[in-house]
Design a protein around this nucleic acid. Structure first.
Lengths: 342, 342
DNA sequence: CTGAAAGCGCTTACAG
DNA sequence: CTGAAAGCGCTTACAG
């Protein structure tokens, strides 16, 4: 089939489908988008014609005409923490079948970078936004508001009206881990945190509150470092914590990689776990069950968060009402050998 | 400023910049894209006007008019292997400043899924393609060829003419690890592979060739399982390999996570490493240096591959010639305690 | 429920 | 080196 127009791209367009189906292009557009107000028979005819021609709608033309692309902008801090990989995978798994493309922006926990990324993503006129937590620059917050786009926050929850979020109680989870340590007989329970983003600090708060309730809180047992968490850092922190004059009998690490590093350091140093010190992590990342001893941790529902947040966003992008603005998902304590002797 | 047109979106357009700069829209377009054939003074005037108005080009309009978006489609097997996270991060770091958005497709090593993802990405008329290795369905291959888009292959190299690639010698790397094990005195050296993608099999080939040259090859010491690699799988494989009638004195695992799992299993089973069996991994992933004993491995240049491949693609997308169609980057053997007694 | 017209914001190809 | 015209492939808003 030759095209006569000067700039013809050889692409099958709405026009072609319309001719084949014997209707107007606009009807094809409506039929294919599943807009009501089109006779079922016509819809069928259009569908057959589109199929026969192998028609693929042009996202750029669609975006230009409707002022919304089929992109969804996703902002996450990192991809090097499995946590966010699980989140992203589930977001994509949910959004793709619905016809949405994911635009992934990695902020590295940097508010400036998040702002810059969002600007670039916004230029693409995404249909929706998926962001991590609530901590961001005022400018970013305003960009989001001014965009008028549906936006779902992940990982944390908020009671604020009009804010959409899917997460779990970071505070409650921190509390739960600490309570488990207390139940095991520990009294001097340390908190070891890295990165120090808002969620880590909420877990610290949970730890603090739990220990205060039990009358065992000791501010000297809060160890915080701003570096990104890693096994190496966990090993270092463990060693320096155990070298303090009056070391703890249990340590709650804010992330499993830190705790894994601590377990390996304990092995090297010949410090018995949980005999001399119990160790707990957070997130239940790959490998934690393989540690020696296996790591007690808390399984966070990041996969489900990704799925649920994407579904909520889908509802919002379709202009449908959402029952729950804020969905709080359950987490699960996973008790293993690092806190309970075999 | 009120807009009179009925569908005005409130967006600052080329038109506005043109009026402000006192030139035609087309000149603005050319000036901003850095096309030559525009007087430097005009370029400057346009730039100032655009800046003042906060003009952001509309990618959708641009894509529609030019039939190319500023997207680059990236296809990778997984995000749960740090390897590919490093690759993607470096790709984005290189492409973003040049004005390109990355579209990430995760194939899960499934040719069908890769094909489907590519179709979706192609609908967005990306400016270029970045794919992993050379193993894919014939249909996918044809989609790539028919698209006429510049395409750079990563992780592996190929001498084939007209094929752009940036990688390292998987065969050579497998050979190097094996040679190191041989040099340490091992003679019964096993290869333990999972996933069994093309690159793993090339490493296996390197292991085979090295041992044949040394006259030590034993086909019974090749252990292959198709499951995705993980610490748990590594532990299982290690245990079953050591339970064979005539176990090896060294094992080369095709990925660090398997080897890490093996080291932890050895610890649990009380099997001395490297005393009774030496263990080597591949990739140098996070945590390997923290293992007990630290894991000998081979550091692969995936970050540099991402950067170099993105740069090559940038050249191609700009229509500039590329000196080397095929860039082979160096890897580095990292010798640690799991193969050499302290 | 269906359609003709206009427009989304850019770039291509052609003139000058 | 600069510009007026046309077009990219859709959807919006307005009629009927």
């Amino acid at each position: 089939m030759t095209r006569s127009k000067s700039r013809g791209t050889g692409r099958v367009t709405l026009q072609h489908v319309a001719e084949k189906a014997g209707v107007s292009p606009i009807t094809v557009s409506r039929a294919l988008r599943g807009e009501r107000a089109v006779t079922p028979e016509l819809v069928e005819r259009v569908r057959v014609a589109a199929e026969a021609l192998g028609y693929v709608p042009d996202p750029a033309a669609r975006a230009l005409a409707s002022s919304h692309s089929n992109h969804v902008a996703v902002l996450i801090p990192l991809l090097s923490n499995t946590l966010f990989v699980d989140l992203v995978e589930n977001v994509q798994r949910t959004l793709r079948p619905a016809g949405f493309q994911t635009l992934i922006g990695i902020t590295h926990y940097d508010p400036q970078e998040e702002e810059q990324l969002l600007r670039e993503q916004l230029a693409h006129r995404p249909a929706g936004l998926l962001v991590t937590g609530f901590e961001r620059s005022e400018a970013t917050r305003q960009l989001i508001a001014a965009s008028g786009l549906p936006c779902v926050h992940t990982m944390e929850t908020s009671a604020e009206a009009g804010v959409y979020c899917v997460g779990f109680s970071q505070h409650g989870a921190g509390h739960a881990i600490t309570a488990h340590l207390l139940a095991g007989g520990a009294r001097r329970i340390a908190f070891a945190g890295a990165q120090l983003d808002a969620r880590v600090m909420q877990r610290a708060e949970g730890w603090r509150d739990c220990l205060r309730q039990a009358g065992c809180h000791d501010a000297a047992l809060e160890f915080l470092v701003p570096q990104p968490s890693s096994l190496g850092l966990g090993a270092e922190m463990f060693q320096s914590i155990m070298a303090t004059p009056n070391p703890p009998d249990a340590i709650f690490f804010c992330n499993d990689d830190l705790a894994q590093g601590a377990l390996l350091a304990a092995l090297r140093l010949g410090i018995a776990v949980p005999g001399r010190v119990a160790i707990a992590g957070f997130n239940d990342l790959p490998g934690s069950e393989q540690m020696v001893p296996p790591l007690t941790t808390l399984r966070t529902p990041r996969g489900e968060i990704g799925h649920t947040a994407a579904q909520m966003l889908l509802q919002l992008m379709r202009g449908r009402p959402v029952a729950d603005h804020c969905v709080e998902l359950p987490y699960q304590l996973v008790v293993r050998g690092s806190t309970v002797a075999a």
